[in-house]
Protein backbone atom coordinates (compact mmCIF):
# COMPACT_ATOMS: atom_id res chain seq x y z
CA UNK A 1 0.00 0.00 0.00
CA UNK A 2 1.36 3.39 -0.89
CA UNK A 3 2.26 5.89 1.79
CA UNK A 4 -0.56 8.21 0.73
CA UNK A 5 -3.14 5.45 1.11
CA UNK A 6 -1.79 4.61 4.56
CA UNK A 7 -1.90 8.27 5.57
CA UNK A 8 -5.50 8.52 4.36
CA UNK A 9 -6.29 5.45 6.45
CA UNK A 10 -4.53 7.05 9.46
CA UNK A 11 -6.74 10.11 9.16
CA UNK A 12 -9.85 7.94 8.76
CA UNK A 13 -9.10 6.01 11.96
CA UNK A 14 -11.43 7.37 14.68
CA UNK A 15 -8.83 6.48 17.33
CA UNK A 16 -6.67 9.33 16.04
CA UNK A 17 -9.43 11.86 16.69
CA UNK A 18 -9.87 11.27 20.43
CA UNK A 19 -7.77 11.16 23.60
CA UNK A 20 -4.65 12.92 24.77
CA UNK A 21 -2.73 12.10 21.56
CA UNK A 22 -5.73 12.78 19.31
CA UNK A 23 -5.72 15.42 16.58
CA UNK A 24 -8.14 17.83 18.39
CA UNK A 25 -6.01 17.80 21.57
CA UNK A 26 -2.78 18.33 19.62
CA UNK A 27 -4.37 21.10 17.55
CA UNK A 28 -5.50 22.97 20.67
CA UNK A 29 -2.02 22.58 22.23
CA UNK A 30 -0.31 23.81 19.07
CA UNK A 31 -2.59 26.82 18.69
CA UNK A 32 -2.42 27.67 22.40
CA UNK A 33 1.40 27.65 22.53
CA UNK A 34 1.61 29.68 19.32
CA UNK A 35 -1.12 32.20 20.17
CA UNK A 36 0.25 32.91 23.65
CA UNK A 37 3.75 33.46 22.24
CA UNK A 38 2.60 35.73 19.42
CA UNK A 39 0.41 37.76 21.79
CA UNK A 40 3.18 38.28 24.36
CA UNK A 41 5.58 39.04 21.50
CA UNK A 42 3.18 41.58 20.00
CA UNK A 43 2.68 43.35 23.33
CA UNK A 44 6.46 43.78 23.56
CA UNK A 45 7.38 44.32 19.90
CA UNK A 46 4.63 46.52 18.48
CA UNK A 47 4.95 49.48 20.90
CA UNK A 48 8.71 49.45 20.41
CA UNK A 49 8.52 49.27 16.61
CA UNK A 50 5.71 51.83 16.43
CA UNK A 51 7.54 54.28 18.72
CA UNK A 52 10.86 53.91 16.89
CA UNK A 53 9.11 54.33 13.54
CA UNK A 54 7.11 57.34 14.69
CA UNK A 55 10.14 59.20 16.01
CA UNK A 56 12.39 57.87 13.24
CA UNK A 57 15.04 56.92 15.79
CA UNK A 58 17.31 53.88 16.03
CA UNK A 59 16.38 52.77 12.51
CA UNK A 60 19.46 50.58 12.26
CA UNK A 61 18.51 48.80 15.46
CA UNK A 62 14.95 48.21 14.27
CA UNK A 63 16.09 46.85 10.91
CA UNK A 64 19.03 44.84 12.22
CA UNK A 65 17.06 43.06 14.92
CA UNK A 66 15.55 41.01 12.08
CA UNK A 67 18.98 40.16 10.72
CA UNK A 68 20.18 39.08 14.15
CA UNK A 69 16.93 37.16 14.65
CA UNK A 70 17.60 35.28 11.42
CA UNK A 71 21.09 34.36 12.61
CA UNK A 72 19.90 32.78 15.87
CA UNK A 73 18.75 29.23 15.08
CA UNK A 74 15.24 28.70 16.49
CA UNK A 75 16.09 25.08 17.26
CA UNK A 76 19.01 26.15 19.48
CA UNK A 77 16.81 28.76 21.17
CA UNK A 78 14.30 26.06 22.18
CA UNK A 79 16.97 23.69 23.49
CA UNK A 80 18.74 26.47 25.43
CA UNK A 81 15.45 27.59 27.01
CA UNK A 82 14.79 23.97 27.95
CA UNK A 83 18.19 23.72 29.67
CA UNK A 84 17.57 26.92 31.61
CA UNK A 85 13.88 26.57 32.53
CA UNK A 86 13.41 22.80 32.50
CA UNK A 87 10.32 20.90 31.47
CA UNK A 88 6.99 22.54 30.77
CA UNK A 89 5.38 25.21 28.63
CA UNK A 90 7.55 28.05 30.00
CA UNK A 91 10.71 27.36 27.94
CA UNK A 92 8.59 26.82 24.81
CA UNK A 93 6.65 30.05 25.20
CA UNK A 94 9.76 32.06 26.13
CA UNK A 95 11.72 30.92 23.08
CA UNK A 96 8.76 31.25 20.72
CA UNK A 97 8.15 34.77 22.06
CA UNK A 98 11.78 35.68 21.46
CA UNK A 99 11.36 34.38 17.94
CA UNK A 100 8.14 36.34 17.34
CA UNK A 101 9.58 39.73 18.33
CA UNK A 102 12.11 40.63 15.55
CA UNK A 103 9.81 40.51 12.49
CA UNK A 104 7.16 42.52 14.33
CA UNK A 105 9.63 45.22 15.44
CA UNK A 106 11.11 45.57 11.95
CA UNK A 107 7.81 45.57 10.08
CA UNK A 108 6.07 47.99 12.45
CA UNK A 109 9.10 50.30 12.30
CA UNK A 110 9.07 50.27 8.50
CA UNK A 111 5.28 50.66 8.47
CA UNK A 112 5.40 53.83 10.61
CA UNK A 113 8.50 55.13 8.85
CA UNK A 114 6.80 54.94 5.47
CA UNK A 115 3.84 57.13 6.43
CA UNK A 116 3.94 60.08 4.05
CA UNK A 117 5.52 63.10 5.86
CA UNK A 118 3.02 65.40 4.09
CA UNK A 119 0.19 63.51 5.76
CA UNK A 120 1.84 64.01 9.15
CA UNK A 121 2.25 67.73 8.43
CA UNK A 122 -1.40 67.96 7.43
CA UNK A 123 -2.44 66.24 10.66
CA UNK A 124 -0.34 68.69 12.66
CA UNK A 125 -1.86 71.59 10.76
CA UNK A 126 -5.34 70.31 11.55
CA UNK A 127 -4.46 70.48 15.23
CA UNK A 128 -3.91 66.82 16.05
CA UNK A 129 -1.94 66.25 19.26
CA UNK A 130 0.92 63.78 18.94
CA UNK A 131 -0.90 60.81 20.47
CA UNK A 132 -4.05 61.45 18.45
CA UNK A 133 -1.94 61.79 15.31
CA UNK A 134 -0.34 58.40 15.96
CA UNK A 135 -3.66 56.75 16.76
CA UNK A 136 -5.92 58.23 14.10
CA UNK A 137 -3.60 59.14 11.24
CA UNK A 138 -0.35 57.18 11.26
CA UNK A 139 -1.53 53.81 12.60
CA UNK A 140 -4.38 53.35 10.09
CA UNK A 141 -1.90 54.05 7.29
CA UNK A 142 0.60 51.63 8.82
CA UNK A 143 -1.86 48.77 9.35
CA UNK A 144 -1.12 46.80 6.15
CA UNK A 145 2.61 46.40 6.80
CA UNK A 146 2.09 46.11 10.55
CA UNK A 147 -0.27 43.20 9.98
CA UNK A 148 2.19 41.65 7.52
CA UNK A 149 4.72 41.64 10.35
CA UNK A 150 2.30 39.94 12.74
CA UNK A 151 1.50 37.40 10.02
CA UNK A 152 5.18 36.66 9.43
CA UNK A 153 5.77 36.17 13.15
CA UNK A 154 2.71 33.99 13.60
CA UNK A 155 3.63 31.68 10.73
CA UNK A 156 7.18 31.30 12.04
CA UNK A 157 5.95 30.63 15.57
CA UNK A 158 3.50 27.97 14.36
CA UNK A 159 6.34 26.37 12.38
CA UNK A 160 8.78 26.44 15.28
CA UNK A 161 6.19 25.22 17.79
CA UNK A 162 6.53 21.93 15.89
CA UNK A 163 10.09 21.63 17.23
CA UNK A 164 8.75 22.01 20.78
CA UNK A 165 8.00 18.28 20.61
CA UNK A 166 11.78 17.77 20.85
CA UNK A 167 11.71 19.23 24.36
CA UNK A 168 8.66 17.19 25.38
CA UNK A 169 6.10 19.79 24.28
CA UNK A 170 2.69 19.01 22.83
CA UNK A 171 1.21 20.10 19.52
CA UNK A 172 1.36 18.52 16.07
CA UNK A 173 5.14 18.23 16.33
CA UNK A 174 4.55 15.18 18.55
CA UNK A 175 3.43 13.15 15.50
CA UNK A 176 6.54 14.13 13.55
CA UNK A 177 9.06 13.55 16.34
CA UNK A 178 7.35 10.36 17.58
CA UNK A 179 6.97 9.16 14.00
CA UNK A 180 10.71 9.62 13.46
CA UNK A 181 11.60 7.89 16.76
CA UNK A 182 9.28 4.97 16.07
CA UNK A 183 10.15 4.89 12.34
CA UNK A 184 6.42 5.17 11.77
CA UNK A 185 6.42 7.02 8.45
CA UNK A 186 2.63 7.10 8.28
CA UNK A 187 2.38 9.05 11.54
CA UNK A 188 5.35 11.21 10.45
CA UNK A 189 3.70 12.06 7.13
CA UNK A 190 0.29 12.70 8.71
CA UNK A 191 1.91 15.03 11.26
CA UNK A 192 3.70 16.90 8.49
CA UNK A 193 0.43 17.36 6.59
CA UNK A 194 -1.24 18.73 9.75
CA UNK A 195 1.63 21.13 10.49
CA UNK A 196 1.76 22.39 6.91
CA UNK A 197 -2.01 22.91 6.85
CA UNK A 198 -1.94 24.79 10.14
CA UNK A 199 0.86 27.08 8.90
CA UNK A 200 -1.07 27.76 5.68
CA UNK A 201 -4.29 28.39 7.62
CA UNK A 202 -2.42 30.86 9.84
CA UNK A 203 -1.06 32.75 6.83
CA UNK A 204 -4.37 32.83 4.96
CA UNK A 205 -6.49 33.48 8.06
CA UNK A 206 -4.39 36.46 9.11
CA UNK A 207 -4.35 37.74 5.53
CA UNK A 208 -8.16 37.70 5.64
CA UNK A 209 -8.17 39.44 9.03
CA UNK A 210 -5.83 42.05 7.59
CA UNK A 211 -8.25 42.72 4.75
CA UNK A 212 -11.02 43.35 7.29
CA UNK A 213 -8.86 45.63 9.45
CA UNK A 214 -7.41 47.83 6.74
CA UNK A 215 -9.53 50.92 6.05
CA UNK A 216 -11.07 50.76 2.60
CA UNK A 217 -9.38 53.89 1.30
CA UNK A 218 -5.95 52.56 2.18
CA UNK A 219 -6.58 49.13 0.74
CA UNK A 220 -6.56 50.66 -2.73
CA UNK A 221 -3.35 52.59 -2.22
CA UNK A 222 -0.68 49.93 -2.29
CA UNK A 223 0.34 46.31 -2.11
CA UNK A 224 2.29 46.06 1.15
CA UNK A 225 3.13 42.37 0.86
CA UNK A 226 5.84 43.27 -1.66
CA UNK A 227 7.74 45.08 1.11
CA UNK A 228 7.14 42.48 3.80
CA UNK A 229 10.43 41.45 5.40
CA UNK A 230 11.39 37.93 4.34
CA UNK A 231 11.74 35.78 7.41
CA UNK A 232 12.01 32.05 7.91
CA UNK A 233 12.92 30.58 11.27
CA UNK A 234 11.94 26.95 10.98
Amino acid sequence: MSILARVAQWFADPAHWTGTDGIPTRLVQHIQLSAESVLIGAVIALPVGIALGHYGRFGNLAINISNVGRAVPSFALLVLAFQIFGLGDAPIIISLTALAIPPMVTNSYVAMQEVDPDVKDAARGMGYRELAQVMWVELPLAVPLLMAGIRTSAVQVVATATLAALIAGGGFGRYIIDGLDQQDYTKLFAGAVLVALLALATELGLAAAERLLVPRGIRLLRAPSARRVTYKAA
Binding site: I3, A159, T162, G173, L180, G191, V193, V195, A196, T202
Partner: peptide, 19 residues
Protein backbone atom coordinates in the same frame (compact mmCIF):
# COMPACT_ATOMS: atom_id res chain seq x y z
CA UNK B 1 6.15 30.74 -3.78
CA UNK B 2 4.82 32.72 -0.83
CA UNK B 3 2.47 29.86 0.01
CA UNK B 4 5.26 27.25 -0.24
CA UNK B 5 7.43 29.46 1.96
CA UNK B 6 4.95 29.17 4.84
CA UNK B 7 5.38 25.37 4.95
CA UNK B 8 7.59 24.64 7.99
CA UNK B 9 10.91 23.04 7.06
CA UNK B 10 10.44 20.17 9.52
CA UNK B 11 7.10 19.37 7.85
CA UNK B 12 8.68 19.50 4.40
CA UNK B 13 11.50 17.17 5.47
CA UNK B 14 8.94 14.82 7.02
CA UNK B 15 6.88 14.81 3.79
CA UNK B 16 9.98 13.92 1.78
CA UNK B 17 11.36 11.19 4.05
CA UNK B 18 9.05 8.39 2.82
CA UNK B 19 10.28 9.11 -0.73
Amino acid sequence: FGIFYTIPSIALFALLIPY
